[in-house]
Design a protein around this nucleic acid. Structure first.
Length: 499
RNA sequence: GGCCUCGUGGCCGAGUGGCUAGGCAGAGCUCUGCAAAAGCUCCUACGGUGGUUCGAAUCCACUCGAGGCCUCCA
């Protein structure tokens, strides 16, 4: 029996607003798409939360035996900030600011994004397609939508005809919009719009010749509409219908809504069976975003250089911090919360180091209560992750497991079978490292540091044997001042941890 | 204005109609030359007002408050 059969997954589907059993179209294969970054500047922590959330989805589904094809795009074609006309193209704007070619901007921040992902242990997707690499597919899709009568051309731009579309299909289903009210609210903004209706959106946008990024099309030179790339690439790599589509809550409307409309308009099929939306990271209760100026860059976190931080935090502490809440809840970012997370993570991490070294020590007859307790914890990891990827609850279980591990480490025997012991041990290691992606922190020059500390430990042992406590305390205190904590075992052994 | 979330103990945060979330902080204890780590114990909450129910923090209504989306945004 496969793990995914033993622990069936349920997902809160944004389409229905309800938690639904997850049934892939072609089990064990799972097609999953999530919206990647627009590479016009560095990703901030809010962006990272979403990438981390879907990284965990990808990791867990793979872990329990699904064969997942995970597509996460890179948006490297600029988009006008509004359809109405005079919007700004973020990539062009950055290029001007930094005096670089748009593709240099794209390259620079794609590289930076990959580096950040590596640091945060966010796995590379199976396919990472770029918008500029799929211009042809996008143009083809525009043609299909036009051929079906759901788009019209004006001055070299092509707009999706929402009213026309609604004669046959629903629009606004995902985000629960009422189109008449929507239109009411935005009418005044679009007075000189070339669109038939303000709710129509561009799927191809004409740009002037001084716009550097532009491509030829049947309608003249221009750029693809923002919503179009995900439709085109999702369809290309995952088919006209696939299992999971993820993204931040703020993309629900209009981005994802338009995506659905484009696919239905082109192929008559709604593309996604399970829509998942991760909630926002907030600062003092407000959404973290670049425009609000309250965003944190990963680098500011590692160095502690952000004005709102009073110290530096490690990437894994931050990852842990994010996993402590459910992806669908807002999460508030603060110094206090972060330092609490740092300590909590350290506890799990210590137990991870411990458990890897831990050997099975049989202790008499099997304790049935203990065995069922251990099994409860092991199953709990799966059950909670299968329950809409509840990382917060899973972490709570891992803490309980860590206590068990520490018990064993302090000499308490394990009155269970070796098989149970090993399964417990492996579950702890796997859920921490494979599923949640919390690996042990990388230490620089680890070998040398370790060597030096070992020398000091020897000296301190000698001092202690000689009852020269003044010296032994000095060694410990001085190391402590540098962030190295020595710990004395009962048997005279010494170990250390770096803070 | 429309649509939609959320409001949990000192802090962060899960959660279910009745049974201890968990972490951090704080108090005490065990261990220890002293520490640290670890273990044990304590701190027991669900914005407000009504209602449904044998029973609600969990369901419903209203209300207050905080956010999100409706324009680029993870």
């Amino acid at each position: 029996m496969k793990l995914y059969e033993q622990f069936p997954v349920s997902i809160t589907n944004s389409l229905s607003g309800k938690k639904e059993p997850f049934v892939p179209l072609n089990s064990p294969f799972v097609g999953m798409y999530s919206c990647g970054p627009t590479v016009y500047n560095e990703v901030h922590l809010g962006n990272l939360r979403t990438f981390t959330a879907f990284d965990v989805v990808y990791r867990y589904l793979s872990y329990i035996g699904y064969v997942v094809r995970y597509v996460r795009n890179i948006t490297d074609a600029g988009h006008l900030t509004n359809d109405a006309g005079e919007g700004v193209d973020r990539i062009e704007e950055s290029a001007k600011l930094e005096q670089l070619e748009p593709m240099e901007i794209v390259q620079k921040y794609t590289t930076s994004f990959h580096e950040i992902c590596r640091i945060f242990n966010i796995l590379p997707p199976s396919i990472e397609p770029t918008a500029t690499g799929h211009i042809i597919e996008q143009i083809e899709m525009v043609k299909k939508i036009m051929a079906n009568g759901y788009a019209y051309e004006v001055n070299g731009s092509v707009y999706f005809d929402v009213r026309r579309f609604m004669e046959k299909y629903k629009y606004g289903e995902l985000s629960g919009r009422n189109i008449d009210e929507l239109q009411e609210g935005t009418r005044e903004l679009d007075r000189q719009d070339e669109k038939k209706n303000s709710i129509d959106f561009a799927i191809w946008k004409a740009v002037s010749p001084n716009h550097i990024q532009r491509w030829p099309s049947p309608w003249g030179e221009g750029i693809p509409g923002w919503h179009l790339e995900c439709s085109a690439m999702g369809t290309k790599y995952l088919g006209k219908q696939f299992d999971i589509h993820g993204g931040g809550m703020d993309l629900k409307f209009p981005h994802h809504e338009c995506e659905i409309a484009q696919n239905v308009g082109a192929f008559g099929t709604s593309p996604v069976r399970y829509w998942m939306h991760s909630n926002m990271l907030t600062v003092n209760g407000e959404k973290m975003s670049k425009s609000k100026g309250n965003s944190f860059l990963p680098r500011e976190l590692f160095t502690g250089s952000h004005p709102l931080l009073n110290k530096a935090y490690s990437p894994m502490s931050v990852r842990f911090f994010m996993l402590q809440s459910h992806y669908s809840s807002t999460l508030d970012f603060s110094n206090e919360a972060l330092s609490a997370a740092e300590k909590g993570y350290k506890k799990l991490s210590n137990a991870l180091t411990t458990v890897k070294k831990l050997k099975f020590q049989p202790l008499g007859a099997e304790d049935h209560d203990l065995r069922s307790e251990l099994n409860r914890l092991i199953d709990g990891c799966y059950l909670n992750m299968s329950d809409d990827f509840n990382t917060a609850k899973t972490l709570a279980i891992l803490f309980e497991m860590a206590s068990r591990i520490n018990d064993w480490n302090s000499g308490k025997g394990t009155a269970v079978s070796e098989a149970t012991f090993n399964r417990f041990k492996q579950t702890y290691i796997d859920f921490l490292e494979q599923v949640l992606g919390l690996r042990e922190e990388e230490e620089h020059n680890q070998e040398m540091v370790d060597g030096i500390i070992q020398v000091l430990i020897e000296l301190r042992k000698k001092a202690r044997t000689d009852k020269n406590y003044a010296l032994s305390d000095k060694i410990r205190d001085d190391l402590k001042a540098m962030g190295v904590q020595l710990m004395d075992g009962k048997d005279g052994s010494m170990s250390y941890s770096i803070e």
